[in-house]
Simulated scan of single mutants.
Amino acid sequence: MRHALLMLFMCILMRPVLSGELLEYHVNKVDDYFVLHLDMRVKANYRQVNSVLMDFAKMPEVNDTVVESRLLERIGDRHKIFFASEACIWVFCERIEQVAMVTELGQGYIMSNILVEESDLRHGRSLWHLIDEGSTTRVIYDAEYIPDFWVPPLIGSALAREKMLSEGLKTINGMERVIADQRTGQ
């Protein structure tokens, strides 16, 4: 009986299922580089998606793998930001700290370059392209990274690819969740 009541309580508290779409993806490992491409559709308008992406303090709400995120400095359309994330694949867990220069390029493009001297990556850059589709926004994300920490051989590229893909999906749904919460005032 307690189990049934708990399930009923959880169902009442559950939020509606979000419905972002993953249109296309690929994750590859080439030498030391991890290369990621995600083509997604978010059920929110362009202004809302852009606002969430550029609100660096909200990143832990968008994706709970990000445990800390803050703006360090802003110079016009350039933002120096700090991110810390904690990710696990099986029992191997790593806290990854990054400092990046994020630049709003206009026309829906946002570029990020990792400042390697202040980060746990030997290389990292990404490009977001937001495309206004009216009530939805197409988000194309391309990134490449070289970790500056040991990745056990047991964690093959297939597992790393699966983890990167799941983080991309978590981000799509997280953006929609944060936007839905803003709409309802939560």
Rank of each mutant, 00 (worst) to 15 (best):
R2D: 14
H3Q: 12
H3K: 10
A4F: 08
L5W: 14
M7C: 08
L8K: 06
M10I: 15
M10S: 09
L13D: 08
L13V: 05
S19D: 09
E21T: 01
E21L: 01
L22W: 02
L23E: 05
K29I: 14
K29H: 10
K29R: 07
D32V: 03
V35C: 03
L36S: 11
L38S: 02
M40P: 00
R41W: 01
V42R: 09
K43Q: 07
K43F: 06
Y46K: 05
R47M: 05
N50G: 10
L53Q: 07
F56A: 03
F56C: 00
A57S: 14
A57W: 04
A57K: 10
K58W: 10
M59Q: 11
P60L: 00
E61V: 02
V62Q: 05
N63P: 06
T65S: 13
V66A: 01
E68H: 12
E68G: 08
R70D: 12
R70H: 11
L72R: 09
E73T: 03
E73M: 09
I75V: 12
G76F: 06
R78T: 06
K80I: 02
I81P: 04
F83V: 07
F83H: 11
E86A: 03
E86C: 06
A87T: 13
I89D: 07
V91Y: 15
C93E: 02
C93T: 07
E94V: 08
E94R: 15
R95E: 15
R95Y: 06
I96D: 04
E97I: 11
E104W: 11
L105R: 11
L105M: 15
Q107A: 14
Q107Y: 13
G108E: 07
Y109A: 09
Y109R: 15
Y109H: 10
Y109N: 11
I110R: 09
M111C: 07
M111D: 12
L115T: 12
E118K: 15
E118W: 04
S119I: 14
S119G: 05
L121A: 13
L121G: 12
G124N: 08
S126G: 10
L127P: 07
W128T: 00
W128G: 01
H129F: 01
L130T: 04
I131N: 03
I131H: 08
I131L: 12
D132Y: 12
E133I: 03
S135T: 11
T137D: 01
R138A: 04
V139G: 05
I140F: 05
I140C: 05
D142H: 02
E144I: 08
Y145S: 13
P147W: 05
P147N: 11
F149R: 10
W150R: 14
V151E: 02
V151C: 10
P152V: 04
P153A: 04
P153T: 12
L154P: 01
S157L: 13
S157Q: 05
A158H: 10
R161E: 14
E162H: 13
G168S: 05
L169H: 01
L169N: 07
K170A: 10
I172E: 05
I172D: 04
N173I: 00
G174Y: 04
E176Y: 02
R177D: 09
A180K: 07
D181L: 10
Q182N: 15
Q182P: 05
G185E: 07
G185K: 10
G185C: 09
